[in-house]
């Protein structure tokens, strides 16, 4: 593969990843996108989902919630609201959160204010579980 790609992933409270990588996949608001070295520059908002990056042929996974990505030919900078590496995720807590969110959704009408919040909580928890399952 020609060219290099530097991935930097930071949250407001810490720098999570700063590595030379071969490929990055991130959850854009309008769907997942992949980045290889030499990508055209763009700036996007991120949804809730998985960030996958490949380094020395091995894939690494993170669960992120919201944020921004700045992509250039030689670097990807991801500013996420929260980010956890798959090995950091507390599956017990994620499972409890998922059940709680589902319980709330089951008992609610769509127009209630909490519905949105529960929906988001469910997506977050489900993503974290999925990412945790990758390790």
């Amino acid at each position: 593969m020609e060219g290099r790609l530097h991935l930097e992933l930071a949250t407001p409270t810490r720098l999570v990843v700063s590595e030379e990588v071969e490929e990055v996949v991130a959850p854009g608001l309008l769907g997942y996108f992949g980045v290889l070295p030499g990508h055209a520059p763009f700036l996007t908002t991120l949804g809730v989902g998985e960030v996958i990056y490949r380094r020395d042929g091995r894939e690494h996974y993170l669960a992120v919630t919201g944020g921004f990505a700045e992509v250039g030919p030689e670097r990807v900078i991801i500013l996420a609201e929260t980010a956890e590496r798959s090995e950091e995720i507390d599956t017990g807590r994620a499972r409890t959160a998922l059940e709680r969110a589902e319980g709330r959704l089951a008992g609610r009408a769509r127009e209630e204010i909490d519905y949105d919040r529960a929906l988001r909580a469910r997506t977050r928890a489900a993503t974290r579980l999925q990412v945790a399952g990758r390790r």
């Binding site: 608001l29 309008l30 763009f42 700036l43 996007t44 908002t45 921004f68």
Partner: peptide, 10 residues
Amino acid sequence: YLYEPSPGAI
């Protein structure tokens, strides 16, 4: 840059 969805939204 390409913006997704748009500069204003970002």
